[in-house]
Design a protein around this nucleic acid. Sequence first.
DNA 1: CCCTTTGCTTGACACTGTGTAAAGTTGACA
DNA 2: TGTCAACTTTACACAGTGTCAAGCAAAGGG
Lengths: 197, 197
Amino acid sequence: MSSKNPDTRHRILEAARTMLEEEKAPKVRMGDIAKAAGISRQALYLHFPTRAELLVATARFLDEVNGADAKFAACSEARTGRERLDAFIQAWGGYIPEIYGVGRALLAMQDTDEAARAAWEDRMQAVRSGCRSAVEMLDSDGSLCSEVTAERAVDLLWTLLSVRNWEQLTQACGWSQAEYVREMQALAQRALIRAEN
Amino acid sequence: MSSKNPDTRHRILEAARTMLEEEKAPKVRMGDIAKAAGISRQALYLHFPTRAELLVATARFLDEVNGADAKFAACSEARTGRERLDAFIQAWGGYIPEIYGVGRALLAMQDTDEAARAAWEDRMQAVRSGCRSAVEMLDSDGSLCSEVTAERAVDLLWTLLSVRNWEQLTQACGWSQAEYVREMQALAQRALIRAEN
DNA sequence: CCCTTTGCTTGACACTGTGTAAAGTTGACA
DNA sequence: TGTCAACTTTACACAGTGTCAAGCAAAGGG
């Protein structure tokens, strides 16, 4: 639509990706990204009208580069609910650190920018639908814990796997990624899967 | 130290409390609070040097007014680990909505303001120590799930009970406060308590 | 009754970051 | 040679935080 040189656009996205990988993603400014892309701030606005839109585009770009969709899709090859749950949590454990920086930046502006909030929510639908498919399989499997409805279980799982949780457990509690994934697999199993009696 | 009229200070805190109770706490500005307190913006800065410090003071004020400490302390009267876990989750379920607004405001600026981040973390120590005492009792009780260490369980519980989770489940998933507390009690029990065999 | 201090007021302003506007430059292409 | 597209530079509006300086009004002591 409004974009000009697709090459420049690509350079911007690459620059944004690199910048936003770093620790302090929410502090990355438009000017920083422009400088890293080797263009002026105004040229940046020619390609992306707002910061939120640039961040969203970067998130999409990241997903594309990392083949996020394919990784999630691969989970549906699992043949039991339990396997799918594990596969999904594993996939998610790899996904979150990939988009962590951009996600943090987007989340940080969600209070002031409704578009950013909606965009991030939209982004998270991939994760949420992964939760849903895992839980549905548990349900049809008969392995879903009888004390929880499928709908409830989706919400719970989705919340357990939110970026915020990841953040809290890795940063404040010092958990490693591997620990986190393992622990969440165990937690989800204990909380969602019918106890074998 | 720097404070002048303690009466004015109190009026400010009351005004801040009221303003921050509302939906869009992170958007509440210094000027808004000053106006609500019936003073000028500059007078506000005479009492609280930064926005972060005002928010922290407001949080403390809220805790005091609501007798938060007493409510958490009452949990230790429980005589079994299970009871204490339930009592604590119940207390927490009442606490979070009380400080929700201020907490949201503080969390929203944690990326740009290190002081705000540290202050909120500090505030959350009350909740975290509640988690610790509940888990410790489960542990000495013999009712803690054998698959998880006590330290791990504290981290997990703390994360389950974070404001962000509350937020996600109530806002995005439409859960009510009562549902949330009930469901978290159940989840914590399934995830942390040894299965009766 | 004056005089000082205290607590606040008003008005101006620096600073940061986003986003807009306008005019100038450069290179490709016809 | 002329024109168009993509980008540049400079300037600026706007919002919000925090600072500074001068003024004012009331309380209280000499």
